[in-house]
Design a protein around this nucleic acid. Structure first.
Lengths: 140, 140
DNA sequence: GTAACTGCAAAATATTTGCATCCTT
DNA sequence: AAGGATGCAAATATTTTGCAGTTAC
């Protein structure tokens, strides 16, 4: 996974701009997934809403970020591991949403178990969202 | 699962109105999940958008319908099995979205497998969306 | 210099709220 | 009769598109 925003942009053949750097930094500094709205309030530099939308779309296309569908029908974004590329996203991990703090995180260590589909169905992609309480929010 | 819209409304202590009956009928007649937009174009009776929103919300609260988060961040709705109530939804099945015809369906026969979360995480609810090709869309 | 990126305006879409009226029970 | 449900208007939120000006390379 990338740890440096400038190198990442270079790697993906994307121009280095303030907005892109700030958005990457935001993801690198925060372990939880971020929505468009999260970024809008997080980035104090006042980037245009539209630019943030377009940056997110570009990052998903390039394989830098992946979408995480929220249970309520929103979308959040999180960094991809390095296996992702423009051509294909490879995600095998589950997503966890804490019902207390609201944070959604990638649990890279938990792989999505295999499922056997009924006759005639072909599996292409799987998304698994687990909701519950995260370690930080467990009452002691 | 309910098969009759009038009885269902009575069972859930909801008033019988044209809109509610039409919406229930739509779900009973179509095996795929429906979004608000789907219903709007499906129901030719011209019910108000707002009424449809409110009806869907009511049905989810009562345990008649459950939400299915779409991979792109939308929401669809599908009928619950009878174990659901106002208090709690009990769903253990996966959802399948066909990338060809776009239909999302409940595969009641496929249960969500157990997953072992890392230390400190508590599981409350799980949602699993499988994308691929449904039997109807498999090229012969 | 040039293509890529941004910001602004505006359109298109989606969802929510308030209120007066109507209808089920 | 009374409370619940609907329809309409309008506010709010979300996402997309077009275009002109700016900037990274």
């Amino acid at each position: 996974m990338m740890t440096d925003s400038k190198n990442t942009l270079k790697t993906y053949a994307l121009r280095h701009t303030d907005c892109r750097e700030s958005i990457l930094e935001a993801f690198l500094n925060k372990s939880a997934a971020l929505s468009h709205g999260d970024l809008e309030s997080l980035l104090q530099d006042g980037f245009d809403r539209v630019t943030i939308y377009r940056t997110l779309k570009t990052f998903v296309e390039k394989g830098i970020l992946h979408k995480i569908p929220d249970d309520e029908g929103g979308v959040k974004y999180a960094l991809c591991k390095e296996e992702c590329s423009s051509h294909e996203h490879h995600h095998d991990h589950i997503h966890f949403k804490c019902s207390t703090c609201g944070d959604t995180t990638c649990l890279e260590s938990v792989h999505i178990p295999a499922i056997r589909l009924p006759e005639g169905y072909v599996r292409e992609d799987v998304n698994m969202l687990v909701q519950g309480i995260c370690p930080n929010c467990i009452p002691k």
